[in-house]
Amino acid sequence: MSGKVWFSSVMSNYLIGNKQGLRDKYYGEDWEPAQHEVIRASAKVLEAMEKHTHGYALERTDFPEATAVFDKKCFRRVGDLFVVGRFYAVKERLAEVLARFDLGNGGLVPFPIFQEDLKTPVEGKFYYLNFGARKRTILPNESKNVELVASNSATGVEIWKVNPWAEDGDVALSAAALAGPDLWIEEIVRDGLFMSEALAAALREAKFKIDFELKECAGLWRRCNDRVLPRPALRFRNPAHHPAGSIYRQNPCGGKGGRLSAINWRRFECQREQDCAAHQHGDTRRGAERFGHRTSCF
């Protein structure tokens, strides 16, 4: 996987799955009523939905057996990514793109969509997007515009969400994000998809009629001769200067904490590239100063 990772907030888009004109049939159950109102789900379906949104691979019988169109006008508006029951599904063109990448233990599960008679198949191919990869690489304390939404004092587990106004570089990940599947869900992030640079590029190139709301993550790594080097922390918490423990970016050229200006950020990145080059030419002392120890400039 290349040295870039992308975050998608598409799972937070409530318009996906809203009034699609579909009714579902689960295994061993009758067809749901033909209505736009959300049907109360059984405990079994809710359990499967919870696993689905947390990135666990499901069995075929966990998904609806089939779905059918009862409102053609609404169904015509359904995009390449949609919802069947309470599970994400994709149309054929998006499936073809996803199939080229590592989806972990999940994959694409075909299912039928019928017309109003519940017998005649709708033209086209449709697939459930069976998530099957989970990672724990996000670094909340190094990130910006992330919010703690739940915590368990007994286990120490915290659940975070990325705010809708997050920008490129706000979400920080460890180098472990570069390994493994191209599409995954972070264990401690609610309603977020993460993907490799290759997959993000393929989605952009295909120009689907859906906004995946991609934001580039800040990878806390740099590569020098295939060696992964840690990236210095870019934030600090200073309750003395900033009420309520607000997190601010640290000024790379000294001084009080605050947002990095575009100029200072470019100077910071330029200096890191110089350090990387110095490391490649054997100047390990300089690399150690920059990457292993804090200096006056950082």
Rank of each mutant, 00 (worst) to 15 (best):
Val109Ile: 14
Ala95Ser: 14
Arg259Thr: 10
Leu118Pro: 09
Tyr127Trp: 13
Glu116Phe: 10
Glu92Ser: 08
Val149Ser: 07
Phe126Cys: 03
Ser153Asn: 12
Gly258Leu: 04
Asn264Gln: 13
Asn238His: 13
Asp62Tyr: 03
Asn152Arg: 11
Val157Pro: 05
Ile185His: 00
Thr137Asp: 06
Ile138Thr: 13
Ala277Ser: 10
Tyr56Phe: 15
Pro33Thr: 03
Asp191Arg: 01
Phe70His: 01
Phe126Ala: 01
Gly254Thr: 00
Asp80Leu: 07
Tyr56Ile: 07
Pro181Thr: 06
Asp117His: 11
Lys73Glu: 15
Asp80His: 10
Trp165Ala: 11
Asp117Thr: 09
Gln35Leu: 14
Gln35Thr: 14
Ala43Glu: 13
Ala95Asn: 08
Ala154Gly: 03
Val83Lys: 13
Asp275Asn: 15
Asn251Gln: 13
Arg267Ser: 07
Ile159Lys: 01
Glu147Pro: 06
Ala179Thr: 13
Ala89Gln: 04
Gly132Val: 02
Cys217Phe: 10
Asn105Cys: 08
Val157Ser: 14
Ala179Trp: 08
Asn18Pro: 00
Leu229Pro: 02
Phe208Glu: 07
Ala48Ser: 10
Phe101Trp: 11
Ala99Gly: 05
Ile113Phe: 04
Asp168Val: 02
Leu108Gly: 04
Pro33Val: 11
Ala277Asn: 06
Arg93Asp: 14
Val38Ser: 14
Asp102Asn: 15
Gln280Asp: 15
Cys224Ile: 14
Thr137Trp: 03
Ser151Pro: 00
Pro112Ala: 06
Glu273Asn: 12
Asn152Glu: 14
